[in-house]
């Protein structure tokens, strides 16, 4: 059985097509990542799956329940953490948690085991108002609130946006622990490096799913050769590299330029001499393994 199943889900806002024929199958007990840039349609898909909006076309099932007809059933078994940490800023950590437990007709002590790992980090601050928490702590509190009723499936819409790197790392560790208790997790993120932490990912771009696979398979399907290129004049470097034949993609990645090319047509030495002829200084070309962003950029181009 799939914990989430969608068939040809489409949704448009006026003349903007937010989702086009989305077909997804999320397995029981996996962390499924929905990866894509802002405006790709991630939140729209989340809202359809959490019964907050209706799809224009297609059907979707969460834990076997139809999101349109059986919305009441779904609302009992999902834990949902919306895009912004939706907490009551004027209530304390403890009060927020108690409130969200109460609306699911349960108590914090009843499900303490489920949230123990996360909440134990928050407990020293339980009297503090949620509005005065740091970003990382707000995120943990929001997750605790989404978990407090022991849901069967968790929907986390961009849970790590606006949170520092350390907290993000911690957060993913927590998600893995939650997964091990048998809860399926459907998570979205704009950060490519987080995609590698999911069991399976779907790349979404302009309302369309580009691919669905495990991070490992996605990387191994990257057949081009990839190199990180550096030189003094980065701007000129990009234009010059783009002019080369047999180059699939050129894009800036941090301090270097990622260049994917067909090694059968051109080799790194030839590229080096080409760049020298274009009067570049301090050139370095290093072959690298593709990361998720490289794969996504390639998929976007195809």
């Amino acid at each position: 059985m799939f914990s989430i199943k969608t068939k040809n889900i489409s949704k448009a806002y006026k003349d903007v097509k937010a989702l086009k024929n989305i077909n997804l199958n999320v397995k029981e007990g996996e962390i499924f990542g929905l990866i894509g840039p802002d405006g790709a349609g991630k939140t729209t898909l989340f809202r359809i799956l959490t019964t907050l909006i209706l799809p224009d076309k297609g059907r979707a099932f969460v834990k076997g329940y139809d999101v349109v007809k059986k919305y009441k059933k779904i609302r009992k078994i999902v834990g949902y953490m919306p895009g912004k940490f939706s907490l009551y800023q004027d209530l304390s950590v403890e009060e927020n948690l108690n409130f969200f437990a109460s609306i699911f007709n349960t108590t914090v002590s009843e499900n303490y085991e489920t949230i123990k790992d996360i909440y134990s980090q928050l407990e020293p601050f339980k009297k503090r108002l949620a509005g005065r928490l740091s970003g990382g702590m707000k995120q943990k509190l929001a997750l605790s609130c989404a978990l407090v009723h022991k849901p069967e499936i968790l929907f986390l819409d961009e849970p790590t946006t606006g949170v520092d790197a350390v907290s993000r790392k911690e957060f993913w560790d927590i998600l893995n622990k939650i997964k091990n208790t048998g809860i399926s997790i459907f998570v979205s993120t704009p950060y490519m490096e987080e995609a590698g932490l999911c069991d399976r990912v779907a790349f979404i771009q302009k309302g369309e799913i580009l691919t669905v696979d495990t991070p490992k398979n996605i990387k191994s399907n990257f057949h081009d050769t990839l190199a990180a290129v550096k030189a003094d004049n980065m701007y000129k470097l990009i234009t010059d590299l783009r002019a080369l034949k047999a180059v699939q993609a050129v894009f800036r990645f941090g301090k270097s330029i990622h260049l994917s090319f067909d090694i059968n047509v051109i080799n790194p030495d030839e590229i080096l001499s080409y760049l020298k002829s274009k009067e570049h200084n301090n050139i370095s070309i290093k072959k690298i393994d593709p990361n998720m962003e490289d794969c996504f950029m390639k998929l976007m181009k195809d």
């Binding site: 959490t50 019964t51 907050l52 919306p82 939706s86 009551y88 969200f100 989404a146």
Partner: peptide
């Protein structure tokens, strides 16, 4: 405005 309505809606309330 705060987005908490989303959570209230996705609950048995």
């Amino acid at each position: 405005e705060l987005g908490t309505m989303e959570i209230l809606l996705v609950s048995p309330l």
